[in-house]
């Protein structure tokens, strides 16, 4: 049985670069599993059952590596879906004027679809969370998420600048392109212009969502059962 445990732990740590620190942790993990196994055996469990329960505690060593967090998966995913739903609804409501102004209608419709998808995902995950309190974890690579956060911020910023540049270029460079200066002849047109300028702000919600994913990992860290 001890040999099996040793082999199990070896397999867990396979493929990792064995630094001194990791070797240290490996020894600690093995000795704790060993103590648990002994304890289960002392409680009268069969060898097989004791082994099964012992290894169930640790199915991955991702949590021992830096920048990684273990979360309860359904709860985490459900909260994330809820945030996505909230954001999509927010944009959907904020773009209701699109119907009148005729600008950004595609965004308005896309957000309705996104709300529907996120809402459905949320409900399903919520049901799964209720049904299966199996304590199964899910590994979140924080370092990866943080990288994404940075990337999506840059992407969103770039998209924003590009959109604004195009919009303003077309409007205020009007005398260059069309040989006729721009005329904002009334509050309506000013509103349309302001509205079109505000629309691209919606793309900032993507990095915000990724950021939320990082935050939620803290809140949902799996603790015990």
């Amino acid at each position: 049985m001890k040999e099996n445990l040793k082999r199990y732990v070896d397999r867990l740590f396979a493929g990792q670069e064995m630094t001194e620190e990791l070797a240290d942790r490996k020894e600690e993990v093995l000795s704790n599993m060993d103590a648990r196994l002994e304890d289960y055996l002392a409680q009268g469990l069969t060898g097989e059952e004791a082994f099964r329960r012992t290894v169930r505690q640790i199915d991955s060593i991702a949590f021992l590596l830096p920048g990684v967090k273990r979360v309860d998966r359904y709860g985490y995913a459900a909260d994330l879906a809820q945030t996505a739903l909230l954001y999509a609804l927010l944009v959907w409501v904020a773009t209701v004027p699109s119907r009148l102004l005729g600008v950004g209608l595609w965004l308005h419709h896309a957000m309705l679809l996104a709300s529907g998808a996120a809402g459905a995902a949320y409900l399903i995950l919520l049901m799964l969370e209720r049904g299966a309190r199996d304590g199964k974890g899910f590994t979140v690579r924080l370092s990866l998420l943080r990288g994404w956060e940075k990337k999506t911020w840059m992407l969103a910023g770039l998209a924003l600048l590009l959109q604004w540049g195009m919009l303003l270029g077309v409007r205020f460079g009007s005398s260059l392109w069309f040989g006729r200066p721009l005329s904002v002849s009334g509050p309506y047109q000013a509103a349309v212009l302001g509205y079109s300028l505000a629309l691209p702000l919606a793309c900032l919600l993507l990095p915000l969502l990724v950021r939320r994913a990082v935050r939620l990992a803290d809140q949902h860290e799996a603790v015990g059962e």
Partner: peptide
């Protein structure tokens, strides 16, 4: 009633 999970213990 409360059994701390090993991963949580280590972190």
């Amino acid at each position: 009633v409360f059994e701390l999970k090993e991963p949580t213990l280590y972190s």
